Lab assay of single mutants.
Amino acid sequence: MSIQHFRVALIPFFAAFCLPVFAHPETLVKVKDAEDQLGARVGYIELDLNSGKILESFRPEERFPMMSTFKVLLCGAVLSRVDAGQEQLGRRIHYSQNDLVEYSPVTEKHLTDGMTVRELCSAAITMSDNTAANLLLTTIGGPKELTAFLHNMGDHVTRLDRWEPELNEAIPNDERDTTMPAAMATTLRKLLTGELLTLASRQQLIDWMEADKVAGPLLRSALPAGWFIADKSGAGERGSRGIIAALGPDGKPSRIVVIYTTGSQATMDERNRQIAEIGASLIKHW
């Protein structure tokens, strides 16, 4: 067993022997301040990774656009098919120029040779490549099948209805392509620590998230040296922004954090800054 596999296998073990965790309302004060600064709703939840206990939450059962955070769930569904012998990570998928959609920095470079399922998941999570996500959605049967996968996990809230990039439209009061912070946090925890996926697939999923290259201005910008984070960000229309993450000190994750916002007129930089400040408060009061 590799060191990384050992780390993920012992996530519940280490967490069980940690000192009790206590909620700190100071972080919620910052979440509410972010709402004021952005002029928009902000949803927040913080779960203990081992027990699933909610440590703090704000608007945990209000719907927010998922945006690209759905790509972690998508690759979880792909990995479940791999575990069941219905898919192979090494299978190569070929596609054409007509398949390319807006923001496809990886797939646009491989029109000639195609990409493997493993490479597509890596591109979808680490670079948020939209064509990679659409190609992977095709392998599982489309958005409705991802929703069905989530329902089978016990998540009857999260739903995907459309493809990239239309799913980022974020129309107010439109339930399409949305989740709730509580539902997303619980589902992410199941994917990373539950028995739904094999140990190898859980490790692969967290490795992809740990290698995320496009979430630097968010929670990662607030992390002290030595902290662990595996995350996936999302951005959408109407001032929408979000991030889902597993993080913790001492090089291992111990909490799940989900943050979503929508309806702001603020710039992307300002949305990023507010999420980073929430992260800084979380870490300060850990």
Rank of each mutant, 00 (worst) to 15 (best):
T116E: 11
P65F: 03
L89P: 07
S2Y: 12
A124N: 04
A225S: 13
D155Q: 02
T126H: 06
A124E: 01
G90Y: 12
L160E: 02
S240Q: 07
V72C: 07
Q203A: 12
A235S: 08
E210R: 10
Y260H: 01
A246K: 03
M1Q: 01
F64R: 01
L192S: 05
E145T: 11
Q204K: 10
L100F: 09
T107H: 01
S233H: 01
G279R: 01
F17L: 09
H151D: 09
S221H: 12
E56N: 11
A77Y: 12
P65C: 04
E175P: 15
L73F: 08
M127K: 08
R189K: 14
P181D: 00
C75H: 00
A183I: 10
P143H: 08
L192T: 07
Y44R: 00
E277V: 11
E108T: 10
H156S: 11
W286E: 02
H156V: 11
Y95L: 08
Q4F: 10
R118C: 13
A133S: 10
T186V: 14
L100G: 03
I244A: 07
A225L: 12
A148C: 13
W286G: 02
R202K: 15
G90K: 15
T112H: 14
K144G: 14
G142C: 04
T147P: 03
D250K: 13
S96F: 11
E270F: 12
I171H: 15
M180D: 10
P143V: 07
L74C: 05
S264K: 05
G251M: 10
L282N: 03
R7K: 10
K30D: 05
K190C: 10
D212G: 07
G90P: 08
A34I: 10
A34Y: 06
S233T: 14
G85N: 11
Q37C: 11
N134M: 04
I259E: 00
S68R: 00
R202S: 13
F13V: 11
I259W: 03
V78L: 07
G142F: 01
G52W: 05
S2V: 08
A235Y: 02
G279E: 02
A246N: 05
S122A: 12
M66W: 01
E102K: 08
G279V: 05
L205R: 00
G242R: 00
R118F: 13
R118I: 10
E270M: 13
K109D: 12
E35D: 05
A276I: 07
T267F: 07
Q37E: 14
G141C: 05
R176A: 08
G43R: 00
E277I: 12
A16H: 14
E46L: 09
N130H: 00
R189V: 09
K252A: 13
F64C: 02
G43L: 00
A183G: 07
T261G: 03
R7A: 10
R63I: 08
K232Q: 00
R7L: 07
P181N: 01
S80R: 11
D174C: 06
R162G: 08
E210S: 10
T116G: 04
K53S: 13
I93T: 05
I206D: 04
Y260W: 02
I54C: 09
L28N: 07
G236K: 01
A148V: 13
E195G: 14
Q88N: 13
A280G: 12
L197H: 05
P253A: 13
S104R: 03
E169T: 13
L28S: 08
A245V: 05
P143D: 03
F22I: 07
T179N: 00
I171V: 15
G226H: 11
E56A: 12
G85C: 08
E210M: 10
P224S: 06
P165I: 08
S281P: 03
G251S: 11
L199K: 11
K53T: 15
M153L: 14
E56M: 08
M67H: 07
L218S: 03
R63S: 08
T112L: 15
N134E: 02
M67V: 10
N134K: 04
I11T: 07
D129F: 00
S68V: 00
V29Y: 04
I54R: 09
W286D: 02
A215K: 05
V42N: 04
G242V: 01
S233F: 01
D161K: 03
M268R: 07
S2Q: 13
I206V: 14
G154F: 04
L49S: 07
A185S: 08
R41C: 06
T147Y: 04
A77S: 10
R118L: 12
M67T: 11
L135I: 14
D99P: 05
P181L: 03
L55G: 06
N50E: 14
V82N: 06
R91V: 05
A133T: 11
R255D: 01
P217T: 11
L137P: 00
R59N: 09
L47F: 06
T186S: 13
L223K: 07
V31I: 11
L218F: 04
T116Y: 05
K232H: 00
R271V: 10
N50A: 12
P249D: 07
D129S: 01
K213C: 12
W286C: 01
E169A: 14
D113A: 12
R273K: 15
M127W: 13
M180K: 14
P253I: 10
V72A: 08
R59T: 02
A133V: 02
A15D: 02
L223F: 05
S221D: 09
L167G: 05
P60C: 12
T147E: 09
K284H: 10
C18R: 01
L223S: 07
R220V: 04
M67D: 11
I54S: 08
R91N: 08
V106R: 07
W227F: 08
W227L: 01
D83Y: 02
W227T: 02
F228L: 06
E62V: 08
K144F: 13
L191K: 01
T139E: 15
M153W: 15
W208Q: 03
A222G: 11
L247M: 15
H156M: 08
Y260L: 11
Q274P: 05
H285D: 07
D161E: 08
Y44H: 03
V31W: 03
G141F: 04
S128C: 00
K232E: 00
P60R: 12
R202G: 07
A124D: 01
M127C: 09
P181I: 04
T126N: 07
